[in-house]
């Protein structure tokens, strides 16, 4: 238990959160490992897990019929993965939340896996915790959006 709390506190996403909040989150958390090639998340499956990556890199991919898997971004230690459990995507709340991207380990990956439903309950029960986490999730989403914008600009393309 102490170990997990320490690992949670050490992850940049939860850095600076109070000790009490870390303790609350421990109950939703387990330590997981993936071998290269293994999927952390798979598009279409029920979104159950929020990963805090501790080591190794994972690749976010979209499967395009005829093209195979297209690599959208790679993430690594310090990043987080899997936001669908937040139910912020506007999907029908009576249905289970779904994963929208494939996430595959590129290296041996070590991560903390937080149970999405558990986390969701804790955030609902303790709005202060919920608010702090939501702010971080929003910042994260914002940064990722910013990167996608830059990526979309295709700035290194030779001009005609």
């Amino acid at each position: 238990m102490d170990d997990l709390a320490r690992l949670l506190a050490a992850h940049p996403f939860l850095d600076g959160l109070g000790r009490a909040h870390h303790a609350v989150l421990v109950g939703c958390t387990k330590n997981v490992r993936f071998q290269p090639g293994q999927f952390l998340l798979r598009e279409g499956e029920e979104a159950r897990t929020f990963y805090l990556l501790r080591a190794g890199r994972a690749s976010l991919e979209v499967h395009v019929p005829g093209r195979g898997a297209v690599r959208v971004e790679t993430v690594g230690a310090g990043d987080v993965l899997g936001l669908s459990w937040t139910r912020l995507d506007g999907a029908d709340p009576s249905l289970p939340p779904r994963v929208h991207l494939d996430a595959r380990a590129l290296d041996p990956v070590v991560a903390l896996a937080l149970d999405g439903a558990c986390l969701y309950r804790k955030m609902e029960a303790d709005h202060e915790l919920g608010y702090v986490l939501m702010k971080r999730l929003l910042a994260l989403t914002y940064h990722r959006l910013e990167r996608v914008r830059l990526q979309r600009l295709d700035v290194y393309k030779a001009s005609p």
């Binding site: 690749s59 195979g68 898997a69 690599r71 790679t74 690594g76 990167r147 830059l150 990526q151 295709d154």
Partner: peptide, 15 residues
């Protein structure tokens, strides 16, 4: 900025 899955390196923008 972009790659197919045969690339083992990092796919992300410099920032």
């Amino acid at each position: 900025d972009r790659a197919d899955t045969s690339f083992r390196g990092t796919v992300a923008v410099v920032p």
